[in-house]
Design a protein around this nucleic acid. Structure first.
Lengths: 185, 185
DNA sequence: CCGTTATAGTATCGAGTCAATACCAATTGA
DNA sequence: TCAATTGGTATTGACTCGATACTATAACGG
């Protein structure tokens, strides 16, 4: 029981270490998170609303963060054809290049040093914990498209998949991105 | 493929979930971290400098946060006898009571749901990772007094320990607190 | 069709974080 | 004794963040 308390303390500490990494290159932790999200999310999820749900913040806050990133030339907004209310977000070349200097690489390096079994256990444990927290909070999983129950593999020919929920064709590359709507198969 | 990369993404997500918990009762995430630190740290470490090292921030920032907490009546400052520069920090009764509403309990709840083996593996993994990151960054461990190489158990009689580094007697309760100076035995 | 309601996003405000810089007072030490 | 170090505060500017209020587009129900 108190072992759980210790675990919580360690997780708290780890979280602080992670946000500490987020102050490189004049950006803020949340701005890095936004860039990383936009690099990983599919076109249905690269919107202010998607980012808001991912970060668990209010839309006003996220709107401000995106304005800052747009002013800095790291993110581009384009109107969403088909829904005049919605905005499509994309990393600019500068935004993508910025990710090469992502401080989270430090965490990756610290991970590499650990024995393979510890890494595997850690991965499984964090995955289970994230799922568990999201459950408690009824948050979205933001899992990978391919692992979704709405995903129809090769429904339109070789390498041409389909999303039954959004009724949209999916290219091979998109199947590996994260999606707002994802629900485990 | 890059299983480590996925782990880093999960850790990033977990860190975000943790900071999301930090907005209860009108406090900010960092303020909660300060309260938790002050509840766990021994008297040698309950100073602005100790908190600064723990959080990995600059001393100016921490000074501001402490002023806010002091104004809110959650933290008390007293002069440190023996060193006129230093300030001793203590939780007030209100500060200690505030910790009963700590949002990190949500993480603890999410943890409880997991199978015991997963919890144990997670604990070991996070512990190893935190250590590894601190190593890379040459940060202090802030481990528990009793597990320090400067700790002399029962050096002054039953339940009366001693710190060889600070040359100070330690009561039983203090042996379980975290310390700024801690170095693994 | 038209009005109601829901959805996507922006505007503004106030409190606070945060790094950077500059600063002060007490301590250390050559 | 007088410089360097250490512990902490003050100030500034950019930004986060929740709250609230607002606009515009879309969906729906009669």
């Amino acid at each position: 029981m108190d072992s759980d308390g210790k675990t919580v303390e360690l997780i708290e500490r780890l979280a602080r270490l992670v946000t500490n990494e987020g102050h490189a290159h004049g950006l803020k932790p949340v701005q890095w998170e936004a860039l990383r999200y936009l690099a990983r999310a599919n076109r249905f999820s690269r919107t202010p609303g998607g980012l808001t749900a991912y970060l668990g913040l209010t839309k006003g806050t996220v709107s401000q963060t995106l304005m800052t990133l747009e002013r800095a030339g790291l993110v581009e907004k384009t109107a969403n054809p088909g829904d005049g209310r919605s905005v499509r977000l994309d990393l600019t070349a500068a935004g993508a290049a910025m990710l090469d200097h992502d401080g989270m690489a430090t965490i990756g390096k610290a991970l590499e040093v650990l024995p393979a079994t510890v890494r595997a256990d850690l991965h499984a444990g964090v995955e289970a914990l994230v799922r568990s927290v999201l459950d408690l909070r009824s948050g979205r999983a933001f899992g990978i498209c391919r692992e979704c129950r709405h995903f129809a593999a090769e429904a339109r020919g070789p390498g041409l998949h389909y999303c039954r929920l959004l009724q949209a064709p999916l290219e091979e590359a998109e199947a590996g991105q994260i999606c707002q709507e994802q629900e485990a198969a």
